[in-house]
Design a binder for these strands. Sequence first.
DNA 1: AAAAAAATGCGACTCAGTCGCAAATAAGGA
DNA 2: TCCTTATTTGCGACTGAGTCGCATTTTTTT
Lengths: 122, 122
Amino acid sequence: MDIKKKIEKHNIKATIARVSLLEIFSQAQKPLSYEDIKPELKMDKATFYRNISLFIDAGLLNSFESNDKKRYFELKSHPHAHFICRVCNSVECIDNLNITLQEYQIENIIINGLCKQCTVRK
Amino acid sequence: MDIKKKIEKHNIKATIARVSLLEIFSQAQKPLSYEDIKPELKMDKATFYRNISLFIDAGLLNSFESNDKKRYFELKSHPHAHFICRVCNSVECIDNLNITLQEYQIENIIINGLCKQCTVRK
DNA sequence: AAAAAAATGCGACTCAGTCGCAAATAAGGA
DNA sequence: TCCTTATTTGCGACTGAGTCGCATTTTTTT
Ligand SMILES: [Mn+2]
Ligand SMILES: [Mn+2]
Ligand SMILES: [Zn+2]
Ligand SMILES: [Zn+2]
């Protein structure tokens, strides 16, 4: 099991709850919110958030907030931006975007607006 | 009173609550959260949010969310990005930043990371 | 002045997220 | 294996933002 080792590599015990949680994010093609995950969640809400925090602190997960008050989580990979559509609420990873700010240290970029589809339909 | 006319120009009745609310944002130098405003708020929470929504729909206010689950509001002026520091939670307006995404329509950009001060202290 | 329309306050509610605590599970040592 | 201790989990209570219905107040119209 790849995921189990990945967790243990960060000095975190690979409990059933934690493995199943990280499995969800490994299979996902895009960032997920608690609302997205809830239906298939096997653990309690408190345990969910405790483990999410644990993963984030360990550098296994990333989180960011959309403009409609939802918090999204995804596997931490290479740094990249996210686009969130105001109309259809879709979340997209934006890879080819290079932004630097002198003296600032950028960790996350969220762009809000209209996605391709919703821009066309205007 | 400039503010009263500004509100009426958008076909919104300039009630006392609304004028006082927009006055707060006019005097502010940076985006404000509900938590920031609450102490000096004269109106009920529900009225506050109803009027905020009204202003946003009318294009008088902008809103965006930080990564620490706070929603910020500010007077809508020229389009610009915002930087939110993970450490000191400061919010800064970033003016000289030009980002375009083909086929997307950008309305808001939020950058998370470490601000100048917090970058130095590392 | 009376009637209609709009804005407000109040209370109840939802929902994400947090926390303390007790039960359950895992780890370690004898 | 049995006992002890540390860690994790579930549960319940709680907080705080935001929403909603409804009655009251304020404003507008006739
Ligand atoms: Mn992504
Ligand atoms: Mn700004
Ligand atoms: Zn869209
Ligand atoms: Zn800072």
